[in-house]
Structure formats: C-alpha cells, structure tokens
Amino acid sequence: MKKKTFKISHKVIWLSSFFLGILTSVPKIAEHRFNLYEALVDSTVTFLFAVLIWYYNVMTLPAYSSRDVASGFSIMRLVKGLFFGILLMFILACLQQLLLSSINFGPIMLMFEVRGILVNITFYMFLNLLYQNYQNQQVGIELERTKSDNLGAQYELLKQQVNPHFLFNSLNTLKYMVESNDKHSVEFILKLSDFYRFTLESRKHDLIRLSEELDILTAYLFLLKARFEEGIDLTVAIDKRYHQSLIPPFTLQLLVENCIKHNVVSLDKPLHIKLYTEGDFIVVENKAQPKRIPETSTGIGLENINQRYSHLLNKEIVIAKGDTHFSIKLPIIHEDYHH
C-alpha cells in the first residue's frame, strides 16, 4: 500500500530556528559588556543547529502506512538523534571557536552541548506530538473511506445476489418443470429456497467458511443445471484442508455467474468451469468461448470482489486472460491471519 509522508512547512522550520537564535542572544545583550559580533556568531550557530536538527528529525520520522500505525515514539530514534545533535553541536562549537578565538571555550563547551540536547529533545517531542496527531487524522480518513467503500460494495453485492434475471429464469424453469411433471421439481424448489436462505444469512457476514461457500455454489449449480442441463459443467478440486479457510460470501457464485454472462452456454458447446487451488490461491477457470454479441459489462462484479479482498486482506485478486482460458485467482484467507 502506498505510504504517505508527514511534512513540516519549511517556513515553520526556518522561522522557529531564527527565533531560537535570537532568543539565545538575549543573555549576551543583558551583559554589561555587550559585544555585537559575539552575539551574532552565537545566534548564527544556534540557528544553524536548530535548522539541521529540524530536518534530521523530520527525515527520520517513519512514513505513515495503514499497516504500521503504531510506530509513534521511539527511544532508539531519540538516542540516535541525541548522538547526532551532540556531534553536530561539537562541530559548530569548534567553528565558533575559530571565529571567536579570543574566548576560552573549554569551560563553556559543556553549556553548548547541554543547550543542544535540550533543543534536540524539545524538537523531537514536538514533532512526535504533531506526528501522532497526523496519524490519528489519517486513520480517521481511512476508516471513513473504508466505511463508505464497504457500504457501496455491500449494496452492489446485494443487488447481484438477488439478481432479478436469475430469479425470473429460475421461476420460468420451475414453471416448465411443474408443467412437464418433472420429478426434480420439488428438489428444485428446495434448492432455490436454500439459495435465497443462504443469501439472507450470509450477507450479514464479511467472511464465511469456504465449506459454506461451496454449499451455496452447489445449490446455485443445481438451479443452473435445471436450466442449461449438460450445457454447463463445474469441476471442484479443492483440498479439504482448505475448507475451513475463509472467503467473502457469494464470491464463487458471482464468478460462476460472470462466466455464464460472458460465454456461450449450450448443449452443443458446453461451458466447462474448474475450481481448484494453486499455491495460496483458489482459482476459478473457464474455457474462453465468448458470445458473438457480448453483453454489456460494467465491471462492477469483479471490482466488487476485488474491493472486499483489498479491505479484508490488503491483497488483490489476480485476473489472467488467455486465448483459450480465463481465470480468477482468489487469495486464500486463513483464520489465523484474519484473527
């Protein structure tokens, strides 16, 4: 995920450093024997030290990312900053001694180092206060964006789950089966009832067991078989050890529906769909046999699935288009990963 950088205005850095330099010259002005040159050199050294410490602390702040929010206060970063400040103040004090060679810097070197440490700690604490506030704002923004995206995704998912065309086709199929005294009519009604019961129950959850999702797919496939007969074939080859993994509800059903939407399904040209595992992915693959007049596609279905995987797992689905086959790879969600 793209990281966002925390920034401090250059104007704030330079103006605050200038003000600090002026502030350190106040004791010089109060002295009985005021020396303008000494005050200017002292202020300039403090100004340079403050500017460099500002930029060092800003550059060493960790970049914000949603997966590493609690980076906050770091003792190790503070210790490194203090060592850098002590070394920097020593170098600047030596430079000041070259400019003011008439002054004995031995006794007051400690005072410069103490001043540097105090300035360093003050800047570090102030920056971390601003940084924590920035983090809180970013978390709030991301939560609102995620909430908005999830609401939109759930709405689109619900619309697709209760597809009026699918319901219309299922009822027409049922009508034909009843009129022809088909012995599978009762089973068809039960499977249709199961499918919509699954719809009502599963839409309340972000994730369900893969075994439950396969039950939904079995009921859905039975309804499709009643309509297309041998025109559609689904092969499921998923190791049982993955049945307790998690998956967003109705993901497999939507992908199978997507296959039917974009491919020819007939007895002369049956549509073969394979469902299997490959590495750490569940793969839904179909033989590419596109319709002569393709249906209008908004891309909402695949984008809906991709959004849910992005929000829940911080991963994306993989879409592979070939000359003869089309496949979708879904990252397997293990329970210990998702907690």
Rank of each mutant, 00 (worst) to 15 (best):
D280T: 07
D280G: 13
D280V: 11
F281T: 15
F281V: 10
F281R: 13
F281A: 15
I282P: 11
V283H: 01
V283I: 12
V284I: 15
V284M: 14
E285V: 14
N286L: 09
K287D: 14
K287W: 13
A288Q: 14
A288P: 06
P290H: 04
K291A: 04
K291L: 15
R292V: 09
R292K: 13
R292Y: 04
R292E: 13
P294T: 02
P294I: 10
P294W: 03
E295R: 15
E295L: 12
T296C: 13
S297R: 12
S297V: 14
S297C: 09
S297D: 10
T298N: 03
T298C: 05
T298R: 06
G299E: 09
I300K: 15
G301K: 03
L302Q: 06
E303L: 11
E303D: 11
I305Q: 03
N306T: 10
Q307H: 09
Q307S: 11
R308F: 00
Y309Q: 01
Y309G: 05
S310F: 08
H311K: 12
H311V: 14
L312T: 05
L313W: 02
L313M: 13
L313T: 04
N314V: 04
K315S: 08
K315G: 00
K315W: 06
E316I: 11
I317D: 07
I317V: 12
I319C: 13
I319P: 09
A320R: 12
K321L: 08
K321V: 12
K321R: 06
K321D: 12
G322P: 08
G322R: 09
G322Q: 08
G322F: 05
D323W: 02
D323H: 07
D323C: 03
T324C: 01
T324M: 02
T324R: 07
H325M: 14
H325W: 01
F326E: 01
F326K: 00
F326C: 07
F326Y: 06
S327M: 05
S327P: 01
S327W: 04
S327R: 08
I328Q: 00
L330D: 00
P331Q: 02
P331Y: 01
P331W: 00
